[in-house]
Design a protein around this nucleic acid. Structure first.
Lengths: 123, 123
DNA sequence: GGACTTCGATTACACGCGTAATAGATTACG
DNA sequence: CGTAATCTATTACGCGTGTAATCGAAGTCC
């Protein structure tokens, strides 16, 4: 299955549906009204485009349409992560990780968790 | 200083100049000929756009122009990383790092290095 | 010094994206 | 029924991007 490219604004739409689905267009609109000030028409457009590019699927429920993801969030994260990794770090994951470790603020717990992860990875 | 947004193709151009600068347009073209099959005109266009958006500066050396970065690679990495972090991971660095640790293949040395980094961060 | 070459600047064009208005279809209400 | 309300689909438009041709100026060669 080919993972489509999800644009910036589209991620916000997808996130709504990854969290809960299926939803009608208007439910998505309501959900997004919390974090954005997009017009409903704008959101409908994005829903259509996402369907067209294969990121969403929908089925008619009477007169309303129910939208749901056609690709998992995880797959999109991997695709997007890969693209970012290649573009900015020339594909080198080590430096990427080092960058974020240095640049971000992490809680003690997170640090411990990451160290555990790395240890497991090392063995 | 405001860091401009660098597009996908533009990163490749910037990388040439981050590695060695100043260079004439044609030197950049030659350098890129190794990895791409872009027409020289295409590359000239990107150089112009990068100057216009403040990522490059240039000075005339006789009839030729010499291009050089106006922003550091590190600053761009930080900007781009921030945008990626927000978009895909909702700003949570921990999960981002965890994702790449799990998704990537890392050498023993890299793993050790990252663990050291984290340890230092923890203290 | 006029034609040719060489460069960078200007212009072009299609496509994706952010943003939205309008049209078309279907349902619901009076 | 017919008109208003409600949905989705279609169309729009300006901007960034990928990709490139063409223009114009400035040297270079006879």
């Amino acid at each position: 299955m080919k993972i489509p490219r999800i644009s910036d604004a589209e991620w916000q739409v997808m996130d709504v549906l990854w969290q809960r689905s299926p939803l009608t267009a208007n439910e998505v609109v309501d959900e997004l009204a919390r974090n954005t000030d997009w017009e409903p028409a704008t959101i409908k457009t994005m829903l259509n485009r996402l369907v067209k590019k294969g990121a969403l699927k929908f089925k008619a429920e009477g007169k309303r349409y129910l939208y749901a993801p056609a690709v998992t969030r995880d797959a999109c994260v991997r695709t997007e992560g890969r693209s970012f990794l290649d573009r900015v770090f020339g594909g080198a994951a080590g430096p990427l990780i080092a960058h974020f470790v240095e640049d971000a603020k992490l809680s003690k717990d997170e640090i411990a968790e990451l160290r555990r992860l790395l240890e497991r990875k090392g063995r």
